[in-house]
Amino acid sequence: MAADPRGRDPWARQDALARSTTAWGAASVVAGLGLAAARRGPFATAFGTQNAGWGAVDLVIVVVAGRLKRRRMARLPDPYADDALAAESRTLRRVLWANVVLDAGYVAGGAALWRWRRDRPGAAGASAGIVVQGAFLLLHDAHHAYWSGRR
């Protein structure tokens, strides 16, 4: 099958998701650990630790999602058959839009916690980390859901 010029191949979209999530996750771990180790106060330490933790989870998700993708592809007689591509596209879009809703919840919840905990620098820093990570995931998942298109 020729490459889809509109980027609607769900298998390729999942590879793109994995690449961008890996880059973000690795950057979050490195920057977060660096910030936490710098000992610039409880806000910065908690913010860094929160980002490092989310980055590590992102990396685990990439590994698990990659294995599940390979397993689904192996079970299909032809993973690039029109019906297989259509089914995988629908599933990917549903998962990504569900993630967008969850991501919005992370941003809203983190912002509320940040506001309520503003007098506790460590808790406020951890809450700010949730906002940053949730905002990235919100934009990331919405972008990929939108560009996944319909078959």
Rank of each mutant, 00 (worst) to 15 (best):
V107E: 06
R118E: 00
A98D: 09
R94L: 13
R71H: 10
Y106D: 14
A52R: 09
A86M: 00
T91D: 13
L92P: 10
A126F: 14
R75Q: 09
G110K: 07
G125E: 02
A108R: 07
R115T: 15
L96M: 12
A98R: 09
R90I: 00
G109Y: 11
G125M: 06
R67N: 15
R67K: 12
V101N: 03
Y106C: 07
A126D: 06
N51P: 02
I61E: 09
N99A: 13
L96I: 05
G109E: 11
A65H: 08
L113N: 12
A124Y: 08
L76K: 11
G53Y: 01
A98H: 10
G109I: 03
V100H: 13
W114G: 03
A98W: 10
G125Q: 08
G53H: 09
A86P: 05
V57L: 15
A81M: 02
G66I: 08
L102T: 15
N51Q: 13
A108E: 12
L102R: 06
A74M: 04
R93P: 01
D83Y: 01
A124R: 04
R117T: 12
D119G: 11
N99L: 07
V64W: 07
W114N: 05
L59M: 11
V60R: 11
R94Q: 11
K69W: 04
W54I: 08
G53I: 03
T91F: 09
R94P: 01
G110H: 03
V57P: 02
A108L: 12
A52W: 02
